[in-house]
Design a protein around this nucleic acid. Structure first.
Lengths: 143, 143
DNA sequence: CTATATGCAAACACTTTGCAGGCTC
DNA sequence: GAGCCTGCAAAGTGTTTGCATATAG
């Protein structure tokens, strides 16, 4: 099954490399700007293809849609519950970067997701409230 | 908003305590056996209620449906890609069990999910193949 | 009694798939 | 020109919600 170098594929790859941990919808919007009638199905198919061949990384988020990463190597992430953005969690090392046995379990991979407030949102909340507020908003809000 | 002690609520709690990290569908099936015409919506509503009041834990899986845990305190999990079961990952300590700052990020929680082969499935694969096989099946298979 | 909880079905968010036609190599 | 790729629409999964009714306290 040899791969073909289509415009759509290139645009999807570009979008993932340009945006900060976008989800499929954000990639779709970015690509649509350059090729208006692209289909969401094509975006999903190419995201999977690119992830499969190791050109991009796929991030399971647990909250909302999957995200995609210009960096394929697995690493830890941080999701801000206020602005919805996802950051690399440089403060914590990836556990078990290589397969190994632990207590009889064959550990092949590890997905680590921190959540809380990113520096910018934390500052905002501190100005408004005494403790760390509860407000949570989806990053979809600002179209 | 005072809580009421309904039969449905008790059955949902029982199911989560009895089953091993069930998803909503498994809870629904278990509860249906005792109260045939319960609604899936009621199961979902009660799972959220119980998680909110700290009676059970909610596990984000990234792969398929959310799971629920008789243990509310957050801890690391392991998901077997062959049988689909989820286990407690006692071999790895929960990172940052209490909120704290790291690099300016206010870290409130951390979700860690290991994946690979559980001891039983690993043994099976070793008997059949030289390396750790690729077969992956959903735990739904055995209805 | 009355607010909370329920069952039903429809809606919802995200993703995958079947198909006919288009494009890359 | 063969077959991978695309766009479209429909279907699939997992979950939430509106509404009328039932029930716990």
């Amino acid at each position: 099954m040899e791969r073909r170098n289509t415009l759509q594929r290139r645009l999807v790859l570009d979008a993932v490399r340009t945006l900060l941990h976008p989800d499929a919808e954000e990639v779709y919007r970015a690509v649509s700007a350059k090729k208006p009638n692209i289909s969401r199905a094509t975006v999903y198919r190419n995201l999977h293809l690119l992830a499969e061949e190791g050109a991009i990384g796929e991030i399971q988020t647990g909250e909302g849609a999957d995200r995609y990463d210009h960096e394929a190597r697995r690493h830890c992430h941080f999701r801000c519950r206020a602005c919805g953005k996802m950051y690399d969690a440089a403060f914590f090392p990836q556990p078990f970067p290589h397969p190994r046995y632990e207590d009889g379990f064959f550990v092949e991979s590890c997905n680590v997701e921190f959540a809380g407030l990113c520096p910018a949102c934390d500052k905002k909340y501190q100005n408004k409230e005494t403790d760390h507020g509860q407000a949570t908003q989806r990053h979809k809000d600002g179209g």
